[in-house]
Each structure stands twice: as C-alpha cells, then as structure tokens.
C-alpha cells in the first residue's frame, strides 16, 4: 500500500489551493496526522490545547453544551478547516467538536502558526486570507441557518 507523505496529503486539501509551494512546505513541516474514532471528542469547550485542523475525511459536529443537553450547531467534513480561532491568540475553544464517524485530519499547533505568521508576513497574509475565507463561509452559512427559511410562517408580513 502506497502511503503518501504529509506534504502530498496537504497539497490535495482545498484549503492550500493557490498557496506558494514554500508555504505549503512550511505547513507540512509542522503538520501532524491525527485520527479520531466515532463519537470521540476532538476538543472540548474551553479546550486550550490550541490546535488547528484540516479535515481529510469523516464528519465532525460542532456542539454547544448546556445543562441537560447538547445542541449540534454545524457539521464540517472533508475539505473543511476546524479550530481557526487559535489564530486569534491563546484561549479556549467556544464549542466542542465531536467526530460523528472515523475522522482523519492534519493538526497544526496554533502557537507555532502564529509565530510563523509574525516571522514571515508574506506567509502570514496569505494564510490569514485563507482563514478569512473560511470564517466568511461559516458566517454566511450560520446567518442562513438563522433565517430559518423552512419554518412555516403564519400571518407573517414580508416574504
């Protein structure tokens, strides 16, 4: 069985599309391939381990916990990025992430990523721009979820 190098796997992930080869190389150097079993928590609410993930396969649910219940907010899967908040600085995760099925991902240490961005502003800008893209899509999707477009409207006003 042919095993790919981390760099090859990374290159196939849509997140790095358009990044310079040297930047992809820098990311590959700090990447760690990780796996999670079905129902395993990838990180908890408040988790300070500061990891950023690029999901390679499998479905991950973002959840919020409250007394007596867990609410599922969104799922992410292959081609997605997870844990982008580590780029804003140290601090715990807002939500928890659970693997809904076996998940493979590349994990990156947030502190190292931030350091790299400081040291190499060119990389910093490109990487941050990619993150902005992720955040923007996430925000759009969240807003559309809020619209609750399928809900039956009774006696409403405007369409």
């Amino acid at each position: 069985m042919e095993t790919k190098t981390i760099a090859e796997v990374l290159r196939e992930h849509p997140f790095v599309t358009g990044l310079k080869e040297s930047y992809i190389h820098k990311l590959a150097e700090m990447a760690l391939e990780v796996q999670f079993a079905k129902d395993q928590l990838i990180f908890r609410q408040g988790d300070e381990s500061g990891l950023f993930y690029l999901v390679l396969s499998g479905k991950v649910a973002l959840e919020a916990t409250a007394p007596g219940r867990i609410s599922r907010i969104q799922t992410v899967g292959e081609t997605d990025a997870l844990g982008w908040s580590v780029m804003l600085g140290p601090g715990g995760k807002t939500f928890q992430a659970r693997a809904l099925e076996p998940v493979r991902a590349l994990a990156f240490d947030g502190a190292r990523l931030r350091q790299l961005c400081e040291q190499d502003p060119g990389f910093g800008f490109q990487f941050t721009r990619k993150l902005l893209h992720v955040v923007s899509e996430r925000l759009q999707a969240a807003r559309m979820q809020l619209l609750d477009i399928y809900a039956p409207r009774t006696g409403g006003k405007l369409v």
Binding site: P14, K59, A61, R72, I73, Q74, T75, G77, E78, T79, D80, E137, Q140, A141, M144, Q145
Partner: peptide
Amino acid sequence: YVGVVTTLFRY
C-alpha cells in the same frame, strides 16, 4: 450533516 444546503457543495 448540519448546516444550510449550500454547505453541501464542497462535498
């Protein structure tokens, strides 16, 4: 999956 239907496009 949980999320609006447009999020399925990436798959």
